[in-house]
Simulated scan of single mutants.
Amino acid sequence: MIRAFAFISLIWASTALAQTSPGEAAVNAAQRIEDASIQLQNASSARDRVTALTETVKAYEEGLIALREGLRRAAVRQEALELELNAKSDEIAQLLGVLQSMGRAPSPVLLLHPTGPTGTARSGMILADVTPALQDEVVALRAQLEEVAFLRDLQNNAADTLTKGLNGAQSARAALSAAISDRTDLPQRFTEDDIQTALLIASAETLDAFASGLNDTIGTELDISSPDALSKRGELPLPVQGRVLRGFNEEDLAGISRPGLLIAARPRVIVTTPVAATLRFRGPLLDYGNVVILEPAADVLFIYAGLAEVFGNVGEILPAGSPIGMMGGDSPLVDEILTEMQNGAGLTATETLYLEVREGQAPVDPALWFAIE
């Protein structure tokens, strides 16, 4: 039994070395949030505040994701360790009894055997074999108890770290919105004809009709060359961190299909352009909510729908990685996150972003442009 327990402990130790432990993952995530707070302080003096703040928002988002996952794994690991220790309570009691007996008895007495020198020699050999196994079991038991204490302490302090991360992310988003409003250094391809845009919004009954009439909304064209992302076709990352719920022309539960992707995302996550593109439209449209339409190449449109906030001025050429908006929803409260983690629940992606790609006058599969896992 003792050797089996020691063997299991050695297997667990080798597995723990092969991958980051839940506790280490949570600690590393907390450090990422601390680094993001430093980035936020430095962003005010950065030459390009929008870029610096965009990276800061992403750093907070990634840190919070990693922290929530680390805490979830820590809660699961702690429960598993406590169940394992409870199941071995009798064995642990026997081990402690043996160790106490060995500790009280003088060494010569432990080696003496009533059958004489031969028995004494055999008892010495047995004790020499048993002692390392007992020592290994004690070391493994101590490691498990220390890990349980560490995980408990980690979760007890998690509320402060989560509060700091959530507040920092909110401050970074607000600063980013202000910086985008103040930005005046982007090249502009054209000015918008507000009247024609309003007429198009009022008359278009479908997204297809609106996209087809976008050229009529151009006021004065300026002498600026347009972006050309054709060389990056098929390699672009998705504009938001999330997972694809439905693919191109895939039917939903109601039997309705759309010529685009539906991406599940977390509340308040930032949405960026994956490549340099001209901003052709932003604002509410039909029943799609807030919509952003980008032109990354001639006769190519990227359409994003379902955002809560949208950024930028129509006609501007946005660099790759520029924020174009944020998803809606409410950031979860600290108590809600901790409850989810204690229950072993994962991250919740409650918002959805619709992504459509059009070439010429027709939609095409976004997988032709985006690297979709």
Rank of each mutant, 00 (worst) to 15 (best):
I38P: 00
I180V: 15
K232Q: 12
L64A: 09
F311A: 02
D129E: 13
D160A: 15
P267W: 10
R173H: 07
P332E: 05
T54G: 12
S44Q: 13
I33H: 04
G321M: 11
L353V: 03
T161F: 02
I324W: 07
G70M: 01
G360Q: 09
E91W: 12
L166S: 03
P366T: 01
L95W: 08
A30V: 04
A202V: 00
E62W: 01
T191G: 14
F210H: 02
E205V: 07
E251K: 15
G168S: 04
F370W: 02
D330M: 13
R104D: 11
F190A: 10
G255D: 06
L64C: 05
G255F: 07
G103M: 09
L286N: 06
A367V: 09
E309N: 13
G255L: 04
A265W: 06
V357P: 04
G255I: 02
A209N: 03
R72I: 01
E295V: 00
V292R: 05
A18E: 05
A6T: 11
P366H: 03
V130F: 05
E79N: 14
I293M: 15
G255R: 11
E82W: 07
R77A: 15
I224K: 03
L162G: 07
G213I: 07
A140W: 01
P259D: 15
R183N: 11
I8Y: 12
I337Q: 12
N156Q: 14
I256G: 02
Y288I: 04
L53P: 00
T115A: 13
L53C: 09
E251T: 06
P363Q: 02
I270T: 09
T350W: 06
A172Q: 06
R104C: 00
N42H: 10
A362W: 03
E359Y: 03
T206W: 13
R142M: 09
D208V: 07
E309Q: 15
I180K: 11
S177Y: 01
E351N: 04
Q361E: 14
D129Q: 10
Q361A: 14
F281N: 07
L253R: 14
E351K: 11
N167W: 02
S331R: 14
A74M: 05
P323M: 09
A298Y: 11
L214F: 04
D252S: 07
G213C: 08
A349R: 12
V50H: 10
P363A: 12
G346I: 00
A265E: 01
A52V: 00
D90R: 15
V314K: 10
P332L: 12
I33A: 08
T352P: 00
W369D: 09
F311P: 01
L67R: 05
I8A: 15
R32V: 03
T118S: 11
R246T: 06
D194T: 14
Q100T: 12
I11A: 13
I270F: 03
T272N: 14
N313P: 00
A18Q: 06
I317C: 06
L95T: 04
A6L: 03
L154Y: 06
I65K: 10
A159N: 09
A178Q: 13
S225P: 00
G325F: 03
D299L: 08
A298G: 01
P267K: 07
T54V: 09
A209R: 10
E61T: 12
H113M: 09
